[in-house]
Computed example of a mutant assay.
Amino acid sequence: MNRQPHTSSREVIVAHAIEPVVAELRLIDVADYIAFIRLEHFACLADLVDSAAELYFMPGTLRLGHGGEAHVDWSGSPRIVLDLELRPQGATVYFQLTLAENDASVVLNYVLFEQPDEDPGRNTQMLEELLERARIRKAEIVGE
Rank of each mutant, 00 (worst) to 15 (best):
V21F: 10
G90F: 05
E69K: 03
E54F: 02
V12A: 13
L99A: 03
N102F: 15
P78F: 12
G90D: 11
R63I: 14
D29M: 03
P78A: 15
S51G: 05
S75P: 03
R10W: 06
E129N: 08
P59K: 13
P116K: 13
D119Y: 07
F95P: 01
P5D: 14
E69P: 00
L84D: 02
I136W: 00
G65N: 07
P59G: 09
V93W: 07
A31C: 00
S77L: 12
H16P: 00
S77N: 15
A91T: 12
R133S: 02
W74D: 13
R87N: 13
N2M: 12
N109T: 10
T61D: 04
G60P: 03
L55K: 06
E19N: 15
G67M: 09
A91P: 06
D103Q: 11
V22L: 02
T124V: 12
L39M: 05
S9G: 01
L45K: 03
E132T: 11
A134Q: 02
E118M: 08
H66P: 02
M58F: 13
P59S: 13
G65V: 06
A17C: 05
L48C: 04
A43L: 09
V72C: 11
V49T: 01
M1Y: 11
V111M: 04
I80P: 02
W74H: 08
F113E: 06
H6W: 15
L27F: 01
I37K: 05
V106N: 01
D73L: 03
A104S: 14
G67C: 12
V72G: 10
I13Q: 08
S105C: 04
V72P: 14
R122F: 08
L130I: 02
D83L: 07
A23Q: 12
P120S: 09
R63G: 15
L108F: 09
A70I: 06
N2H: 10
L27P: 06
E128Q: 15
L25Y: 05
A31R: 11
E144R: 11
R26P: 01
D50H: 10
L39P: 00
V14C: 12
R133H: 07
C44W: 13
P116M: 12
V49M: 03
E24I: 07
D50C: 06
G67N: 09
A104L: 00
A15L: 10
P78W: 12
